[in-house]
Amino acid sequence: MSDRAYIATRKGLFEVYRTHEAWLLDQQHFLGDPVSMVLPDRRDGTLYAALNLGHFGAKLHRRDAGSMDWVEVAAPAFPVKPVDSTDPVDWTVRQIWSLAAGGPDEPGVLWAGTLPGALFRSADRGDSWQLVDALWNVPERAKWMGGGYDVPGIHSICVDPRDSRSVLVGVSCGGAWLTTDGGASWSLRAKGMSASYMPPELQAVQEVQDPHRIVRCAAEPDKLWCQHHNGIWRSVDNGANWSEIRPAAPVSNFGFVTAVHPQDGETAWFVPAEADSKRIPPHASLAVTRTTDGGKSFVAWRGGLPHEHCYDLVYRHGLAVSDDGQILLMGSTTGGAWLSEDGGGQWQTISTTLPPIYSVAFA
């Protein structure tokens, strides 16, 4: 059972630990610096923290298991842009937007998704990185566009636990892409999604979809969930086809985050917002919605969460689930952090005064 978690914020990385009575804030790291992503590597206990230092660029730090010291390692970086390139994108990593560990049979392998929308792979625990050229060079990338940022970005990296060479990534706005050969080739995986923000004749185009977040069920890897810019979608065939979730009871179509139960692909959590044009919780009351039947129905959980005058959003990586699916940690754009030990039914407050939270993860 998890007894430690991490909260990456605009002004540092914070640790949370469990006591006999409650979960409490503990150590702090990189105080004052924006930490865009945190990754605890379950394979060897290493902890990775990605920093976004603006003028000084994107940085990556590593802390080995049992150590209190952080070591700066290489950050993903583009090769020199060819002088004859017609690509309008600036080949400079603005931010490390996602980090994922490779499979258990690939010690040391890491994946990183960046702004702009590139995927990088490391085979040596972050000491060096290589741009995944095959994805960067797909012709469809010319249609990718920025969503919340002015450039596309890769925010979701789903490694298949059955086959480490099979990886699905989500791009805002660029759809979903799958490799089955470790990144040597890629195929679109957004069939069935629909983009209401596009002209009618372009709404079903796969490479313009804006999946805000895609997650995979570890125990049922073919089951994927997606919080899209304008709805919730689900796949039961590893992304080959997506079906929009239209439950009997209406839920918000807009939000950023989703999480799936590691052992049950029918159970997933979302944190709805009012609308694209009104990015606050519905009725200014924070809620976590949960389905346990594959999206046929949802229950909104508010116990312990702020009910009135609440304007918190939860970013794409702001909701984490423990391996047993019972403990949830959530962090908001206005520095609220809450934890549930009963699958989201009741929440305890960790803090309401943290900096804006970018990502959370269990050790």
Rank of each mutant, 00 (worst) to 15 (best):
V35C: 09
S156K: 01
L224I: 11
V360S: 03
G318L: 04
S36V: 06
L313T: 14
P116L: 07
A218R: 09
A195Q: 04
V132I: 15
L178N: 06
G108N: 02
P282R: 09
P262C: 13
Q346V: 14
G336N: 07
G231M: 06
V260L: 03
N230S: 12
V35D: 10
V167A: 11
S322R: 02
Q130V: 14
M330S: 07
Y358E: 10
P262Y: 12
G103W: 03
V169T: 07
V80M: 04
R18Q: 13
P104N: 08
C173N: 13
D163V: 06
E220W: 08
A5V: 04
F30T: 05
L168H: 05
W91Q: 13
K223Y: 12
W177I: 09
S122M: 07
L24M: 07
E207F: 03
F56K: 15
L24H: 10
N230F: 00
T92C: 02
A248C: 06
R141V: 07
P199M: 01
A142T: 15
G255S: 10
P262K: 10
P262G: 11
R125K: 14
G146P: 06
E220C: 04
S164G: 15
S128L: 12
L178G: 02
H155P: 00
G12V: 04
A8G: 05
M37W: 03
A50R: 00
A123Q: 15
Q28C: 04
L24T: 08
G231A: 05
W338L: 04
V16Q: 02
A22I: 00
G345K: 13
R43I: 00
G335T: 05
E140F: 04
G318F: 00
G318E: 00
V93N: 01
L202Q: 14
D323Q: 14
E72K: 08
D150Y: 00
D293M: 11
T289E: 10
A249L: 08
S185Y: 09
D342Y: 12
W111P: 04
Q346H: 15
P104D: 05
V73D: 02
L60W: 07
A268S: 11
P40H: 08
Y149C: 00
E201M: 09
A284Q: 15
W144V: 01
A22M: 07
V171A: 01
F30H: 02
L339W: 10
